[in-house]
Each structure stands twice: as structure tokens, then as C-alpha cells.
Write a protein that binds this DNA or RNA. Structure first.
Lengths: 246, 246
DNA sequence: TCACCATAGCGCACGGTGTACGCATCGGCG
DNA sequence: CGCCGATGCGTACACCGTGCGCTATGGTGA
């Protein structure tokens, strides 16, 4: 056998293997990965850095996880588990859906790295947590009065809105963090660049002036709520139409 | 100077530099990057591979582009330029916005790699093309009757929906392409996995059964249109309320 | 008690990545 | 003609994901 030098047959081996920690496991790996991502962001996640945090070598992780891509799928499904989907009994459907949307948004803002991997993992292939949440959320729309063939469309629509909106918020916030500037300065800078490169942007400028001086974080919350309300209004219109046809 | 060995002072140098192609330039680099991404996807884009396609060394690109990240921003802004935003004079606002949304969706499906970088580049920091398109699109909402402080919210809302919806479509399609299965088989497989891991998913199953046998591509188009219609209905409700207050 | 074996962790190595740096060469200007 | 800024290139570095074969471990059946 021409490959590999024998590893050191040292007396330390015993100690290395007898760890006080509950040993490596997929759960532990995923949990630590979430922590690493929250603390240092997506570009800090490497098999080596994760292994180090777990007191293990990089390649040891592969006993519990097929690849980095699979790890990311697991990690994303893990945080989907944090979403809270009310069971909707008793409360009006708008309230339940609003709570649910807010919870999804809060989860993404709590774990902004989700934004940068969503395009890769998609939504379909995700694990048990997302599946469970979808089933529960679907129940909200059924209860609201959408027929079977339409409830899933209504649901995807709302999820798409929440994700699209929040991902762009998260990306903006991460740019803000990277830039090291205050939100004020950053917004000013972006506006200046836009006006220099394009020139003559009366409408964008009008919006900017109107927002100047307001609390940006509150503006984001309100913007999110505004769109969601419009959306729910539209769904209500549809529900009314369905009801009157019957 | 202790660094570097002198490069070969060869007679070929002259030929290397006298290229029939119009030399390297940022435009040429960005255009070729788009082509590479369309043909081979995001993971095939490396500075080396792109350099090769341009008949240049990897590091030569850095004379025209600050980093790979900047290249990606440029590339994304480039494809935003493909969007068609009607100027809205004459047509009802719903039609204009629908056309606009459809054009954005078509652009992303034409360049599915956009989905996998949107979380990184966000929407705010983007270049002249996105800025111009935003201004034009904003005009549609002004014309529809939204006041200055609300038109931009309505616009972001619609964009968020379109992007969220289309990114998840694109991710699904890329999974489909990678899997090598037929869409039928893939859907079946996903459903089986979901039911095995979670069990008891009556609502999701109901939706699945209802969709079985339909043309998946048409279903996607319809799903997108359905959500957009609900959205526009909601915006119309808001417009009516604004009108009656006046 | 012993031999055995599946499992888990590790070290090494490979091919690939983004990019800093300094040199070679070019075209255009004085 | 002599120079100089702009442009391309080769080399090198640190880092990445991960395949491979080794070893130590703890449980099982004889």
C-alpha cells in the first residue's frame, strides 16, 4: 500500500478520543454551525473553522454530514423550526397569517445569512421543519375559506412576499454592517452615487426627501406591514368573490 | 529584489499582446461573464475560467474589476437592464405593472444564477440600470394615483413578491436540472420524502393530488399570476380608499 | 476471556479558489 | 527619440471542500 503515512501511534490518542463532550453528532454539528453563522456570517463558515469550534478535525464532520451543501440544507431547515405558526383556531385568519409572516421575517433578520443561501437551497427540497410549518400554515388558509386548489397558491404567494422583502432587508443590513457607516451616511452615499450615475431621478429623490429624518428601522417595519396589508386585502377580495359565487 | 522570477522575455510576447480582439475592458468582461453564467451556472464562474474564455490570464481581469464581488454586482446590474418597464402612458396601471412584473420574472428565469447571488448583492447597492428601472417603475405607481410617500412602498412590495416567487422557482428548476430526473419523478420523490419524514400531511397531500397530471410549467405561470392578481387587487382597494377620502 | 468488527475521528494530500505583487510590454506623448 | 502611464501576465500564498486509508474505540458473539 503506497498511500498514507501511519498516524502517530501516540499515548495521546486515548485522551483525544475520550472526550468529555457528548461526541460529534449531526445535531451538535448543525447547532454549532448556526451559532457560527450567527456570530460571524456566511463567509466564515468552513468545514475547518466549524471543526475547530467542535474540537474536531475538518474531515471528521463528514461522518455525520455528506457535504457542505447538505450541511447548509440542514442548517436552513433548523432555523425554519424557529418559526411560530399559530394553529389559527379562534383568531381571525388575517391575524394568524400576519403573526406567521412576522415570525418568518423575524427569523430571517435574526439569522441574516439565510438570505445568502436561499437561492441555492430553494424551498422545495427542505426538510421536516419546513414541511411541518407548511402544513400548519396551509391550514390557516383552508380555515380562512380558500378551496383546496387555491389555499396553497395563496400560501406560496404570501411566503414569496415575506421572503423577497426580508431577504432584501437582510442584504441591506449586512451591507450597512460591512460599511461601518451610520445608516444616515450610507443612505446619503447611496443616493449621491445614484444621482451621479443616472441624473434626473425626481421620483426617487422625492421619496428620499420624504423619508429623511425618520427612524429607518421603523420605516422598514412599516414598509413590510404595508405590503402585507395590501396583500391580505387582495386575498380578502378573492374570498368575498368566492363566497358570493356559492 | 527577492521576489518573483523574471517572466520569459520571449519572442511570443509581441504576438500575445497584439490581439485581434478589442482588448480587455470592463464591458467585455461583464458580457462574457453573463454568457458563462448562462451556459454553465454560478459555480462555473471563476476568475480563471472567465479569463480563459477571454483569452487572458485570471489576474488580468483585476485591471478592470476590483474583485469578484464587484464583478457580480456589475453582472447583476447588467441583466437588470434587460427588464422592460413600460412608460405607462395610455395603458391602465394594472396592465403596465403586470407587464413589468412579468418582464422581471422572465429575466430571472432566463438567468437563473441571479437567484443564487441576490442575497449577497441585495437590491440597494445596485448600479445605474436598476436605478433607472426603479425610477421608471415608480412613475407607474404615481400615475396610478399613489401619493409620493406610498408609491415607493407599493413598488418595493411588488418587486419583493416577484423576486421571492421567481427566486424559488429558479432554485426549483435548477434542482430539477441537477437531478436529471423528469419533473414528474422529482415531484413524486419529494412528496415521498416529505411524507416519510413527517407523516400525516393531509393538506399538502390534497394539493399534490389536485395538481397531479397538470402541466407543471403552466402551473407555475398560473401560480405567479394568481399571486400578482391578489396583490394588485389589494393595491386597488387602497387606491379606492385614498380616492374616497379626498 | 478473547477475537472480531462496525463506527468515529484524524492526518495527509489533491486540485481548485481569490487575489497581492512586481515585471514586461505596449501605445501615445513630449 | 525617450519617456511614462496603462495594461497584461506569471508567480505565489493562504485557504477551501473533500477522498482516502489509517487507528483507536466500544460493543458483540464464541
Amino acid at each position: 500500500m503506497p498511500t498514507g503515512k501511519p498516524a502517530v501511534p501516540s499515548v495521546w490518542a486515548r485522551q483525544r478520543h475520550k472526550r468529555e463532550q457528548p461526541a460529534l453528532s449531526q445535531d451538535r454539528i448543525v447547532a454549532e454551525a448556526v451559532r457560527l453563522l450567527d456570530e460571524e456570517g456566511i463567509e466564515a463558515l468552513s468545514m475547518r473553522s466549524l471543526g475547530t469550534r467542535l474540537g474536531a478535525g475538518a474531515t471528521s464532520l463528514y461522518r455525520h454530514v455528506a457535504s457542505k451543501d447538505e450541511l447548509i440544507e440542514l442548517v436552513v431547515d433548523e432555523v425554519y423550526g424557529e418559526m411560530e405558526v399559530p394553529d389559527g383556531s379562534g383568531a381571525p385568519w388575517r391575524e394568524s397569517v400576519t403573526a406567521c409572516a412576522g415570525s418568518l421575517r423575524a427569523m430571517i433578520l435574526r439569522h441574516p445569512w439565510v438570505a445568502s443561501v436561499l437561492g441555492q437551497v430553494g424551498l422545495a427540497e427542505l426538510g421536516p421543519n419546513l414541511t411541518r410549518q407548511s402544513e400548519r400554515m396551509l391550514a390557516l388558509f383552508h380555515r380562512a375559506g380558500f378551496p383546496a386548489g387555491e389555499a396553497d397558491r395563496a400560501m406560496s404567494t404570501v411566503i414569496a412576499y415575506v421572503i423577497g422583502m426580508t431577504v432584501s432587508e437582510a442584504a441591506y443590513l449586512s451591507m450597512l454592517a460591512r460599511s461601518g457607516q451610520s445608516e444616515q451616511e450610507l443612505a446619503e452615499g447611496l443616493r449621491r452615487i445614484a444621482e451621479e450615475t443616472v441624473r434626473d431621478l425626481p421620483l426617487l429623490r422625492e421619496g428620499y426627501d420624504q423619508r429623511a429624518g425618520e427612524d429607518p428601522s421603523r420605516l422598514r417595519d412599516e414598509g413590510f406591514a404595508y405590503g402585507l396589508e395590501r396583500f391580505l386585502d387582495g386575498l380578502q377580495v378573492r374570498l368575498d368573490a368566492l363566497g358570493s359565487h356559492r
